[in-house]
Design a protein around this nucleic acid. Structure first.
Length: 787
DNA sequence: TGGAGCACTCTTTTT
DNA sequence: GAGTGCTCCA
């Protein structure tokens, strides 16, 4: 224990030894923040503070887990509460559910459950969708909850058009959740914040219980989280928050950077510690990050510095196309691994949007490089998993309408959409859960005899399943899979035995259940398992140790570090993203996003952009990111891969003006120490061979052998094939569809374009056919020009 | 009731 | 380009 303060710098020590009163730790990237936080917890324990008085709140399970490991190493066995905000709230709410009108076995709706509920609420509220999409309504309601605005508070307010519609749906949606004994993610925070606000006694009890609260990534808290933390730190204001305003990247989800910027105003007696020394990156990388972030106005000035050796310059690489970018990076990785300079898990590739990983994925797969992608659509989103979880949810909470609607006819039991709607309206009319309505199916007059029988059968299935509610999870699941007919259903529908087959996924879920049973021999309840499942995310799936290249979005990269980082697509409208350019604060957030990406790199960093990129199906010129001009370009190594111009088809170049050449990027004028132009000779050799294969198909009569040979050759050629395909497949330019033009549509036949509106992918034509006018989005509609 | 075909959407997404 | 969700038809 004596060694707790060894090897800490003075500022780190100040933070660690702080015990009572508010503490703000402004921690730059790579400044040993987690180390400080964990040592501080150990120090608190050393001071004799009971573990149960300490709670450490994080945003991700991953961060909580990491913290848990490290605290355990310093103070083995200490039962400090560590976990995410949402889990913290879920557990509090479990205990005090009645205060907000819920039962303690309430369910947590995931995003798709909420979406379903939202759909019904919108229908029930009877609002028109012409001026607001369901997503817009949902995010408006979510924003309200994050700002602790109740449906009542919106009454009589003057609102924008979308907000006004959302205000009508909001109470209906909340009523649905209440009837279903369910909450959505936002509610976990919202309910707890209100619980604390309206129950002063409970608040002061909890304030006394959680005497020492630590919040990680405080710059990402929203108002609800702020209110919760605040409410728990009134009598015992021992609140320690860590964060970095420069890494606030969740403003779009309601995070308010003001929470950290104003912390010193909220708690005037605060002790502020700045951790500015960086232990992660080379000075080269750090200077680039620092120069960039200095362009933000809303921030707290920090002086980032490091004692690390200089390292190699940051690289800015300019590629002709996204395909070249993918190939170039994949080649670099292969070569570095082949030389023995690095292993696959040294590398990370970051991008702004998930879709951008695709070309990299191809390139790496072609070269046999193992990789992992950290992204959204994962295990718990799979249909079969959602189905089985819905059964579990319904067993645990008979009021879970979304779950009922999902499973009542899965596998098919002859209960169609019509019957389900009858159940729903009967349930709504009587303000009862749908399962209850199903029990009273005989009372529903609209229901056909046959349907009523089928529903009765389902209810009896449900009752059989429900008898297992308290059994070990494995038993529940196995019983459920056979009893519901789901096993047979799966065996009949899909029989491919690859690792992602539905059956394999079901096995994996059972494995997870077994594991859960093992870990929770006593307290393992269905409730707890479902809570666990609802609150894990796919980002948690990141495996640090595995020998793979990691690809992820910039958002997902926060908190991680890698020896070698490639940051792709540093282009205008991508970073900053086209949708984040409305105001300066959004652009600042995008700049922070780039800052986060840059500061993940330990030794090597390459930023790249392309001159052209295939975006949503069409190959378009691209402008470099304005952020590039904010970097210290004189110390950045610029590499541009030159490609023979005539390789690009002339027509193609004309229909897509080369905007790259228009705004001359400052890089040109800067005194770049190194400006290497690479002339890849493979290009000139490979292009004809692609043409050869194309010719062979044109000469008709392709046997399957030829076809296979062609495929193999094409795949061997990698990106060249794709790029050349794009050139030959360039569609009729959208500008050719003008008013008055004659077109042919597969279904409607020939027609005349009456009018054209919108731009880019939104360009829409109204076309008059024999049977009337129809609107088509030109980029997607299957239209032919009639000459 | 399920599948095909079509229109339309596509930023990020800790939980 | 790919995924989703809706509509219409067999």
């Amino acid at each position: 224990m004596a060694g707790l303060l060894d090897q800490l710098t003075q500022p780190q020590r100040d933070a660690v030894t702080h015990v009572d009163g508010p503490l703000l730790i402004l921690a730059g990237p790579g400044s040993g923040k987690t180390r400080v936080v964990t040592h501080r917890i150990a120090h608190l324990l050393e001071q004799g503070i009971p573990a149960w008085q300490i709670a450490a709140l994080t945003f991700t399970n991953k961060a909580a887990e990491e913290m848990g490991h490290r605290v355990n190493a310093l103070a083995p066995g200490a039962k400090v509460w560590m976990g995410t905000f949402h889990r913290f709230c879920a557990q509090l709410l479990r205990r005090h559910a009645a205060l907000v009108g819920l039962a303690e076995n309430y369910s947590i709706y995931d995003t798709s459950d909420s979406k379903q509920a939202m759909k019904h609420a919108i229908a029930a509220a009877g609002v028109s969708l012409t001026h607001a999409s369901p997503e817009k309504i949902a995010s408006s309601i979510s924003r309200s909850k994050n700002r602790l605005v109740t449906p009542e508070m919106l009454q009589g307010q003057s609102l924008g058009p979308v907000e006004a519609i959302a205000a009508k749906v909001y109470p209906v949606y909340q009523q649905h959740l209440l009837t279903a004994n369910a909450v959505d993610f936002d509610d976990l925070l919202f309910h707890v914040a209100n619980l604390l606000r309206y129950n002063p006694e409970l608040r002061s009890d909890l304030d006394a219980k959680f005497r020492y609260i630590l919040v990680d990534e405080y710059q990402d808290t929203n108002l609800a989280q702020y209110a919760i933390v605040r409410a728990l730190s009134i009598d015992h204001p021992n609140l320690a928050v860590t964060g970095d305003p420069d890494q606030s990247i969740y403003g779009w989800r309601g995070a308010d950077i003001k929470n950290i910027l104003d912390f010193e105003k909220d708690y005037p007696s605060v002790t502020t510690v700045r951790l500015e020394q960086n232990y992660r990156s080379t000075p080269n990388i750090l200077r680039v990050a620092d120069q960039l972030i200095r362009h933000n106005r809303r921030r707290k000035q920090k002086n980032l510095f490091t004692d690390n050796p200089e390292g190699q310059p940051v690289v800015l690489r300019i590629f002709e196309s996204g395909f070249d970018e993918a190939d170039g990076i994949a080649d670099d990785i292969v070569n570095a691994i082949a030389r023995g300079d690095a292993t696959a898990n040294d590398f990370a590739i970051f991008c702004r949007i998930n879709a951008m990983t695709r070309s990299l994925e191809h390139a790496l797969r072609n070269r046999g490089v193992p990789y992992q992608i950290i992204n959204g659509v994962e295990f718990y989103q799979r249909k079969e998993i959602k189905d089985l979880l819905a059964y579990l949810h319904l067993i645990n909470n008979p009021c879970h309408d979304v779950a009922l609607a999902r499973v009542i006819n899965t596998p098919t039991r002859g209960i169609g959409a019509k019957s389900i709607e009858h159940l729903r309206s009967f349930a709504e009319l009587n303000r009862i859960p749908m399962l209850e309505a199903a029990r009273r199916a005989s009372e529903i007059r609209e229901l056909a005899k046959r349907s009523a029988t089928m529903i009765a059968k389902f209810v009896s299935l449900y009752d059989r399943l429900a008898t297992k509610a308290t059994a070990p999870l494995e038993e529940i699941l196995r019983f459920l899979v056979t009893e519901s007919g789901y096993a047979t259903y799966l065996e009949n529908s899909a029989n491919d035995q690859d690792e992602n087959s539905p059956l394999a996924n079901v096995d994996e879920l059972i494995t997870a259940a077994v594991e859960f049973d093992r870990r929770h021999p006593d307290d393992g309840s269905l409730d707890a398992f479902l809570e666990q499942v609802a609150l894990v995310s796919d980002t948690d799936a990141f495996e640090e140790s595995s020998e793979r290249v990691t690809m992820m979005t910039l958002h997902a990269s926060k908190g991680l570090e890698f020896p070698r980082v490639f940051l792709i697509g540093v282009e205008d409208d991508m970073l900053p993203h086209a949708r984040s350019k409305e105001d300066e604060s959004q652009v600042e957030e995008e700049r922070r996003l780039l800052f986060v990406g840059i500061t993940r790199a330990k030794e090597f960093l390459q930023l790249s952009c392309c001159k052209r990129r295939s975006i949503r199906g069409d190959f378009r010129p691209v402008i470099p990111s304005p952020f590039l001009n904010e970097l210290p370009l004189q110390e950045i190594e610029r590499i541009e891969t030159k490609v023979a111009r005539d390789w690009f088809n002339e027509d193609f170049d004309q229909s897509y003006p080369d905007s790259w050449d228009l705004p001359e990027i400052d890089v040109e004028q800067s005194t770049a120490p190194l400006s290497v132009a690479i002339e890849p000779d493979e290009f000139n050799q490979d292009v004809p061979s692609v043409e050869l294969t194309d010719d062979s198909t044109d000469t008709g009569g392709t046997s399957s052998v030829q076809e296979k040979g062609k495929k193999r050759l094409i795949s061997a050629l990698g990106s060249l094939k794709t790029a050349s395909d794009l050139l030959t497949e360039t569609p009729t330019p959208l500008t050719a569809y003008r008013e008055g033009a004659q077109v042919r549509h597969q279904q409607y036949g020939e027609g005349t374009i009456v009018s054209v509106t919108g731009r880019g992918p939104k360009r829409t034509a109204t076309i008059r056919f024999d049977d009337g006018d129809h609107n088509f989005r030109l980029a997607f509609a299957k239209l032919e020009l009639v000459q």
